[in-house]
């Protein structure tokens, strides 16, 4: 077991519980899907796993270490959440892809070279995107792939993906699927929130409803 979440409980201030004792297990090189009706708290659950949910209680364990023994910044280096909507900061594609290395938490790491960024873009069907291109003028599908590429370049152990192919055209969705598959083949684990389309990537499936997470057999 690589990752364990147990008895996660969360109720937004003044509201009823969204997570009501959730348990989730993730093994190395495994992709699990979380489905459930919209508004059932799938995004909330992903945020809890990345320790990005203020007010959640419960136990999180990664690689044998409980969350209480790991500082949040370090935790998020291993367990990376990609929010549903791609975020591009003003500036060029190069700036956006190398953004994580401008952060103090990765100050000691060497930033990716242009050659590596170029190769990475080519590998996800974005050969036509120049590194100098204005990142705020990308299409939805391009921005989605670039933000997924950005988080993958930081080489996390676990990726938390919130509907990574929602609102994407078929070609972009297929590229995103291939990127996720390569990430898992390369040794990564993924928790993926899904709404509609299903594919054959998931090893196991969970369903979140009424605050409870149950495995779908």
């Amino acid at each position: 077991m690589l990752f364990l979440a147990e008895d996660l409980r969360f109720a937004p201030p003044g509201c009823g519980p969204v997570l009501d004792g959730v348990r989730l297990v993730l093994n190395p090189r495994e992709l699990v899907d979380i489905t459930g009706p919209s508004g059932s708290g799938k995004t909330t659950l992903l945020r809890a796993l990345a320790r990005l949910l203020p007010g959640v209680t419960g136990t999180l364990v990664f690689a044998g270490a409980p969350a209480s023994e790991v500082v949040p910044g370090e935790w998020r280096r291993h367990i990376a959440l990609l929010p549903q909507r791609a975020t591009m900061r003003s500036g060029c594609v190069r700036h956006n892809l190398s953004l994580p290395w401008n952060l103090r938490v990765r100050g000691a790491e060497t930033r990716p070279t242009d050659a590596l960024l170029r190769e990475a873009l080519d590998g996800v069907g974005l050969a036509e995107i120049e590194l100098d291109r204005d990142a705020t003028k990308l299409s939805v599908g391009q921005a989605a792939r670039i933000s997924l590429l950005r988080v993958m370049l930081t080489a996390p152990d676990i990726l938390l993906l919130d509907e990574p192919d929602a609102n994407l055209d078929d070609a972009s969705a297929e590229q995103v699927r291939a990127m996720i598959e390569r990430f898992v083949d390369g040794g990564g684990s993924v928790v993926r929130v899904r709404h509609l389309r299903s594919d054959d990537l998931a090893a196991r499936r969970y369903r979140l409803a009424d605050g409870h997470l149950s495995e779908v057999l």
Partner: peptide, 16 residues
Amino acid sequence: AEEILALVALGASPWE
């Protein structure tokens, strides 16, 4: 807020 969340998820401090 969404942008801030994405950056914090990448390891950014509140100031970053």
